[in-house]
Each structure stands twice: as structure tokens, then as C-alpha cells.
Design a protein around this nucleic acid. Structure first.
Lengths: 141, 141
DNA sequence: GTTGAGATTGAGACTAAGTCTCGACTACTG
DNA sequence: CAGTAGTCGAGACTTAGTCTCAATCTCAAC
């Protein structure tokens, strides 16, 4: 059992939720994806597998995965939500290429600090943030 | 005729688009709104007026208003897009209260500069950005 | 002032992405 | 092993916005 699976079971158990074949299948599929993915891509991947999971279950499970911290939900600006594996990773933000759709991740300690001071100024207690920069990548100038 | 109306007419003219009563009604309604609004709120406001504008026209005109720089479209994270009057204003970002929904605007020259250097690092040519911080405002701690 | 080309309009069909419902099913506790 | 919740899937529903197309209107040219 992977660390991730252990963590997921722990999370479910702590909430009185059940470990079902469908939930395991979703987790396994998620772990097999590199980079950003949509709920629908995940669903399509599961369709051929056994056990499979319905669209509803994919969405429901994704929520639990986000809740357990294994997956991060990122709003990349389109109409659909994106997800990514988050286990053992740091928070990061995104540069999104309007030309080819490439997604480049970045982190900036300095920006985060400035962000914190903006919040202090407004006596605002930050819970999360999303910072995305749209433009053109090196290849698409 | 307000500055805004002049600018809108100029924009339309330059693109070979026409000045119609519906477009004028939308502009007038937009100018009468303070703060952030959704396309639907705008449509509802226009429903009682004469001339009125259909939902399709509201959406279409909003696009032109964004194109002309009179209105800014902001993604505040929900499923619906928000808009705000932008004439004579500077770019700014948002703190969004998860408790009461309040939207606090902020600007930070320093953050923008760091952002620019992140882009340079990745040879990324920024076109626009969106930076939002979710959390709880002073009143909602 | 009239005209005609092409832009614009509104009603409503359509789409995308996700949520909800509910009867059947199943994991887990005792 | 039984009972009780939690869970499942199919598909109806919702939301926010886009598209279609026939009827109408704007505006430049006369």
C-alpha cells in the first residue's frame, strides 16, 4: 500500500467514510497521471478499467482527495477545473500559455511574503490563494 | 455624452461596429453600477428599462466593453464571471471573503515587479494576470 | 431622403461542466 | 451474520454562457 493510499484510508476512516473499490480505483488512476488533469479526463481513464467509477463518483472522490490533501484543485481560468497530484509537493502558482496551453509552475517565497503583508494590512485572514499569469511562453512569442 | 460613451463609440466605429440603442442601454446600465457585477445582474437591471437588451446582447456588448477597456472582467473564482467599471482606474487584485462574500481590492507594485521577474526567468511574455486571495475579512474571523 | 449591404437583434435551442436524486447495493460495526 | 448507514450509478437537472437564424436596423453612398 502506497503512502498515498494509507493517507487516503486514514482520511476516510477519520470521517466515517468507507473504503470502496470505486474510491480505490479513482485514487489509483489519479496516481498514474502526471501533471494537470480534468475530472473528465480522469473519468475517461477509468471507463476502461475494472472496477470503473461513474462520473458522479469521480467528482465525489476527487473532493475527498482534495480534502485529504493528496490532490490540489487548481483554477486555471477555463470553464473546467483542473486537478493535480499534490502529495509531497509545495504550493505553487501557474504561468499559462495562451498559445499552446502549456502550464508552467512557479513559486516565489517573496511574492508569498508580500501577499501576507497585504493581508495583514487589510486584517484579512488568508486561507488560500490563486495566482495565475496568462501570456505566451518562449515557444509561442 | 460622457467620456465613456465617447470612448465606446470610438471603439465601435474603429471596428466597423454599429451604435445601437441596445448597446447604449447596456453602457448606461453599466455606468450606473458600483462595484462588481455579473452579466445576469446587468441583464436583470436592463429588463425593466426601455430600450431593453436580451441576454445574448448583454453578453455580446459586455465583450465589446471589455475590448474597449471600459470594463474589466474579473474571475473571482465562482462559476460566474464578474465585471467592473474600469474607466480611469488602475489594475488591481482581490481579497475575497469566504464568510460574507466581501471583495476587497488591493494593489502592490512590489508584487507586480516580482511577477515580472518570474516571467523573465521563464522567458514568458505576460499578457494579463489574476491574483486572488481567499479567506476571512476582519468582520468574519 | 432612399437604398442596400451588412451588422445586429431576440427567442430559444444548445452546450459544458458539474450536481442532485433515489432505489439498489455494500462496507463495516457489533 | 445482520442491520445500518454510507455509497453507487443512471440519468434528470442546473447554471452560465454561446449559438442560430429570420427579422430588423444602421449607416454610407447616392
Amino acid at each position: 500500500m502506497s503512502d498515498q493510499e494509507g493517507r487516503f484510508r486514514e482520511y476516510l476512516g477519520a470521517k466515517g467514510l468507507r473504503i470502496t473499490p470505486e474510491r480505490q480505483a479513482v485514487l489509483t488512476a489519479v496516481l498514474g497521471i502526471q501533471g494537470h488533469f480534468t475530472a473528465d479526463q480522469l473519468y475517461l481513464r477509468l471507463e476502461r478499467k475494472n472496477p470503473r467509477a461513474s462520473r458522479a463518483t469521480v467528482y465525489r472522490t476527487l473532493e475527498h482527495l482534495v480534502g485529504s490533501g493528496l490532490v490540489d484543485k487548481v483554477d486555471l481560468g477555463g470553464q473546467q477545473a483542473f486537478y493535480e497530484n499534490f502529495y509531497g509537493r509545495e504550493h505553487h502558482d501557474h504561468l499559462i500559455c495562451l498559445g499552446c496551453g502549456e502550464i508552467i509552475e512557479f513559486t516565489s517565497r517573496a511574492i508569498e511574503e508580500l501577499q501576507d503583508s497585504v493581508c495583514r494590512e487589510h486584517q484579512f485572514e488568508a486561507r488560500s490563494h490563486s495566482h495565475k499569469i496568462l501570456g505566451h511562453c518562449r515557444k509561442c512569442h
